[in-house]
Simulated scan of single mutants.
Amino acid sequence: MLAAAWRYRHFIWASIVRDVRARFAGSKLGLVWSILHPLAQAAIYTLILAEVLGARVPGIDDRTAYPVYLMAGLAAWGLFSEILTRSVSIFLDYSNALKKIAFPRISLPLIVCGGAIFNHVLLLLAVGGLFVLLGHPLTIAWAIIPVGIILISAFAIGLGLILGTLNVFERDVAQLVGVVLQLWFWLTPIAYFLESVPAQFLPLMQANPMTPLVQLYQGAMLYGRFPTNAEFAIASAIATLVLIVALFVFRRASADLVDAL
């Protein structure tokens, strides 16, 4: 499957460009909307949690620290949720193309992933500039962010492949994913800190596969530190394992995929 995807790399790249253009066709601001939406969400959370409820980063006496922590977590979560949400319905969205055109089916989640990463990079550039304006300079630890992008994308595309394949045979999967994602967001330390979680719920938060991936972003952007070997090993193992399982499931089900559509 990967060899076939490589042979069709020009088709995948052209499809990514077309997908990005189509999403903002007719819009005067175009790609700017992909930056404004997450920034607006971060601003709302900051206003409610930091200004109204007085949320502060433990151990840091800086009013700008919490917005930085929040935007770092939202950036990581946004990449994950966009790839996962679109991957779940990708085979249904492209059902006509799958029936009429011969191309590797693995190309579709790769196209979704490419478009999401493009939007994510634009957001990171805007966030980096905003951090500088807030008096929070960028550090060398930002160099780990591309690795974080790869790990989050691998985890999201793996999970999306599994659920997207299931969604072809059972259409309620997409609806369930939307509900689960809302709960999953609040089970991930994005708007709060692990230090503030009651002891009885801490194992649940630590078992969350998105926790180490989000903390990789937060550690680099706020604390200016690289992940420890243990943190990096856990994040890498989760992403790799889910992706391998997804490719196995997809390979087994791909023969019946078009018939089910």
Rank of each mutant, 00 (worst) to 15 (best):
L166F: 13
L151E: 06
I145N: 02
H120I: 00
I157T: 12
G115E: 02
L161W: 02
I149M: 11
A141C: 13
P146H: 12
L166K: 09
I140R: 14
L133W: 02
I144H: 01
T139F: 04
L123P: 14
I144A: 03
I117R: 00
I162Q: 10
I145H: 03
I149Y: 05
I145K: 03
N119L: 00
L134Q: 07
N167W: 12
A143S: 13
P137D: 14
S153L: 03
L130K: 02
L159N: 13
V127R: 01
T139G: 05
I152T: 10
A126C: 07
L134C: 06
V112Y: 05
A154D: 01
A116D: 00
I140G: 12
I117D: 01
L133I: 07
I140H: 14
F118W: 02
S153Y: 01
F118T: 00
N167Q: 14
C113F: 14
F118M: 01
V127F: 10
P137Y: 08
A143D: 09
P137M: 11
G129I: 09
L125D: 11
F155C: 08
L163R: 04
W142Q: 13
L166T: 02
F155L: 14
L161G: 02
L159S: 15
A141W: 08
L166A: 14
G128I: 05
G148Q: 11
N167L: 12
I117F: 00
G114I: 07
L159K: 13
V127S: 03
L159C: 15
G148N: 12
P146G: 13
I157R: 03
L134F: 10
P137W: 08
I157V: 15
G129E: 08
A156W: 04
